[in-house]
Amino acid sequence: MDPQLTSLIVPTEEVSQIEECLNHLVEDTGGNYALLLDKSGQVIAAQGDGSRQDITALGALIAGTFASSREVAKLLREKDFRMLFQQGVRENIFIALIEEQWILCVIFNKGTHIGLVKVLTKKATDELASVLERVRQQHKARDEVLGSSFRTSMEDTIDLLFRD
């Protein structure tokens, strides 16, 4: 099977390492929130201020911004822009790419210096890149994770839900 079509399965141990890494990033920068996304916009893990709403939409928009900036980069004959910074009145967001697959975002306010965020994000992307590498190396069969009857149950649920 084409590896591009198989799923990325993130096991328990790796997710807890990711969460720990995000947690350190929030604590050490004094930031508000850290988020790890798949390049398709799906949220893998998030840490920080628990009151933040609508993480799903945030993930989709940030991944869209990143994918769009990559196309801009190509027009400028760059491979991609590996980091993006968006500055608001109250909050800022710093976004970094991890190995073409994941996107790390840190949301912080004016109490935190951008230089610190940059340095610590760089450290975190290195750590997360090695976690990603381990995730990629695992070849767990889908059935091992989901169970063999998953597909039939899923089809029944889809039939029930998707109707006028």
Partner: peptide, 15 residues
């Protein structure tokens, strides 16, 4: 690529 988050027991697919 679909994402399966094992501890959160979540599956995400993009269409």
């Amino acid at each position: 690529m679909a994402l399966i988050n094992v501890p959160a027991r979540e599956i995400h697919c993009k269409i």
